[in-house]
């Protein structure tokens, strides 16, 4: 049985708030203290220091841009694509650190919280799934062109 459209809309609205809001808040903490976030990236022992610095400076602004784009629904599809990719990468990094027994915190919200690796992993996976759900939903709710049948049929000449 198809889900009630208004229920789906409500889930989508909540999903946008959760995803966009989380990344905006997380980015804010990291933007306030770049060296701390660079150190957190370094703790994962995956990147050389110069790359950790580049990522530590760039990533919070990317997260802020994507989170804001999801909340205000401008460039939303692009933002969701990036956030889904970021959540996937974060999940891999956290899982890798956990598997190697590293005694570190997630670093997901800078030094504002000290979430453990399992909690960080669960959060990344959840947010990634929310991003994929919203991305798929956005793809299937594109208004059809009244001059062409929906889904669009390419005419072969």
């Amino acid at each position: 049985m198809a889900a009630n459209p208004s229920l789906r809309n409500a889930f989508a609205w909540l999903g946008r708030l959760l995803l966009g809001g989380t990344f905006v808040v997380a980015a804010g903490f990291k933007i306030l203290d770049p060296p701390a976030f660079v150190a957190d990236i370094g703790h994962y022992r995956l990147l050389p220091y110069p790359l950790a610095v580049a990522l530590g400076v760039y990533l919070p602004w990317l997260e802020l841009s994507c989170g804001a784009a999801v909340l205000i629904r401008r460039l939303e599809q692009g933002a969701l694509l990036i956030l889904a990719g970021l959540c996937g990468l974060f999940s891999l990094a956290i899982a890798s650190a956990w598997a190697r027994g590293l005694d570190i915190t997630c670093g997901c919200f800078g030094h504002a919280t000290s979430s453990s690796l399992p909690l960080g992993l669960a959060r990344s996976l959840t947010l990634g799934l929310v991003a994929l759900f919203l991305l798929r939903r956005g793809h299937h709710t594109i208004s059809p062109n009244p001059n062409r049948p929906y889904p669009a049929v390419r005419q072969i000449r």
Partner: peptide, 29 residues
């Protein structure tokens, strides 16, 4: 469309990042 929009966002985020590297009072070493 998602791909085009993502490139725009990726490019736009570079600007405040570079400004932050130059102006932030606590920029990393």
């Amino acid at each position: 469309k998602p791909l085009r929009e993502s490139f725009v966002i990726l490019a736009l985020a570079v600007i405040p990042a570079l400004l932050s590297l130059w102006l932030h009072p606590q920029r990393p070493v």
